[in-house]
Design a protein around this nucleic acid. Structure first.
Lengths: 220, 220
DNA sequence: AATACCAAAATCTTCAATATTTTCCGGTTT
DNA sequence: AAACCGGAAAATATTGAAGATTTTGGTATT
């Protein structure tokens, strides 16, 4: 079984975790819903053990809650959670950007420009068919923000940033479906950020980044 | 079996994870050493499954490295790792302290003073019998630093802080055994930190905290 | 010396069975 | 009616054993 793990998941546990992570992000598995192993096996396949392992992993990542002896649930997604994860991501990513700007060279700036181009494009397109394009839209965003911190020289910061990004993904998707985005606004903010980075204006860049992250929450 | 889980570990997996975590911290399981499931079972008991789960958990925490199809190893502990985890902890904890100082009230200050008293005491005693007292010395430290960020109102920051603290534990133990500590210096720095907190002098407090965290690395 | 191949070892995954804990429901008591 | 037991039923946690897959290490061949 599972000869078709064409994803980059090398192991069944990782494969399962990826599936569940995805479905939680998309809201297929809504917040607070119970995750009964047996039900999940019918849906995704895999053995009970592999699922336990995958779910404990996701619990460690924060998108699943594990109560001992009482199984697993999709982590709740309150307004407080949204604010917490967003605020913290802004801080961490700002710090990573600051450090990256100390080490990053021409090569890095090139990557950043390319990623900006891709995410701008994704912004313009996503509203046409949200369900079909949401994932690659978010992937483009992830790529962009990952590059921002990629030269910070701190693997742990990169790990934290990545965790927070994935943890906040379901909030982004929910917001995208409910209210959509304004591509022009986002592109403008992103433009100011990239310009500040290229100008080596650190305070300006960090401020622009924090605005880019926090802004979508301003008008709920 | 395992009727004796008198630790706060409610489940076998958590119990095993705690044991292994501890032994990694103490260097009983040195960096880069292979963690063969069968060997570990002889040592700690428990089933192979429980161990896999526990080890994937520890891998997610960063103190164990998992290579698919090639088992687990204790995460390596290079100088770069030490610097990374320490630097990041200083930043995260500083941020948490800043936020805590916005929300914390008298109750919080009381807890802080009590924790300071405990950790000062631990500092004075630990050199007498390092092997016997190292763990409670570090627990006192953990308590103190946990309280610093406890009112930051960000569960995720608290989680990150805790992870980094545990990840850096083995470095602290190694340094403690090799070079010991200077209780008077630590107590002085800690004193300046607490005073700044009580005086609501945020910049001073954050600076003192960062110094307290980074200082032990200055003279290697 | 480099490569191909094969067997042993280790890891990964699943099935099946047992133990433990929680949940739920009806009956009893206050 | 509310609170409080008990005990069956359901769900979760844990273990053992066995099969499948992958890596490792040695041997023979070119």
């Amino acid at each position: 079984m599972f000869g078709f793990k064409n994803d980059d998941a090398a192991t069944v546990v990782q494969f399962i975790a990826e599936q569940v992570r995805r479905d939680i992000s998309f809201g297929v598995l809504p917040p607070d819903s119970r995750l009964k192993i047996e039900d999940l096996r019918q849906r995704y396949g895999g053995s009970a053990h592999s699922f336990r392992e995958a779910l404990t992993l996701l619990a460690n990542e924060g998108i699943v809650e594990a109560s001992t002896q009482r199984g697993f649930r999709v982590a709740s997604a309150s307004q407080a959670d949204l604010e917490d994860v967003t605020r913290l991501r802004a801080e961490i990513e700002g710090l990573g950007l600051k450090w990256s700007m100390k080490h990053g060279a021409v090569r890095w700036e090139g990557e950043l420009i390319a990623a900006r181009h891709a995410v701008d494009r994704a912004d313009r397109m996503v509203m046409d068919d949200i369900d079909a394009l949401a994932l690659e839209w978010d992937e483009a965003n992830h790529e962009f923000h990952a590059i921002l911190v990629s030269r910070c020289n701190s693997p742990r910061l990169i790990d934290f940033q990545s965790r927070l990004f994935f943890e906040s993904r379901r909030f982004r998707f929910a917001a995208l479906k409910e209210r959509g985005i304004r591509p022009d606004d986002l592109m403008a903010m992103r433009g100011r950020l990239v310009e500040a980075v290229l100008a080596h204006d650190e305070p300006q860049a960090v401020q622009a980044l924090e605005k880019l992250i926090l802004e979508p929450l301003g008008n709920p």
